[in-house]
Simulated scan of single mutants.
Amino acid sequence: MDGMHYEGMVIRPPSEAESVILQVTVGCSHNKCTFCGTYKGERFRIKDDAVIDADIRYAARHLSFLKRVFLADGDALILPQPRLIRILSRIREEMPWIRRVGLYGNAKSILRKSPEELEALRDLGLGIVYLGVESGDGQVLQEIKKGVSPERLIEAGRRVREAGLKLSVTVLLGIAGRERSLEHARATGELLSVMDPNYVGVLTLMLLPNTELGQKAEAGEFELLSQPELLRELREMLYFTRMTRGLFFSNHASNYLPLKVRMPNEKEKALTTIDEALQGNVRLKPEWLRAL
Rank of each mutant, 00 (worst) to 15 (best):
G157N: 04
R158I: 10
R158F: 10
R158C: 12
R159S: 14
V160N: 09
R161G: 12
R161A: 14
E162A: 07
E162I: 03
E162R: 10
E162D: 12
E162L: 07
E162V: 05
E162H: 06
A163L: 13
A163V: 13
A163H: 08
L165T: 08
L165K: 01
L165W: 02
L167D: 14
L167A: 03
S168N: 14
S168H: 12
S168V: 12
S168M: 10
T170F: 03
V171W: 04
V171Y: 02
V171R: 03
L172H: 00
L173T: 11
L173A: 08
L173Q: 09
G174M: 02
G174Y: 01
I175P: 06
I175L: 15
I175K: 01
G177S: 09
G177A: 11
R178Y: 09
E179Q: 06
E179F: 00
E179M: 04
E179H: 04
R180Y: 07
R180F: 12
S181N: 03
S181C: 06
L182D: 12
L182H: 12
L182T: 10
E183R: 13
E183N: 09
E183D: 15
H184A: 11
H184P: 08
H184M: 10
A185F: 06
A185T: 06
R186F: 12
R186M: 11
R186T: 14
R186P: 11
A187G: 02
A187K: 15
A187H: 13
T188S: 13
T188H: 05
T188G: 07
G189C: 06
E190N: 05
E190F: 00
E190K: 10
L191V: 05
L191G: 06
L191E: 04
L191T: 06
L192H: 01
L192C: 02
L192A: 03
L192F: 01
S193I: 06
S193P: 08
V194T: 11
M195I: 10
P197H: 05
N198D: 15
N198E: 12
Y199T: 14
Y199S: 08
V200N: 02
V200G: 02
V200Y: 03
V200R: 00
G201F: 14
G201S: 14
G201Y: 13
V202M: 01
V202H: 04
V202K: 01
V202R: 01
V202C: 07
L203G: 11
T204C: 06
T204S: 13
T204R: 03
T204I: 02
M206L: 15
M206D: 12
M206G: 13
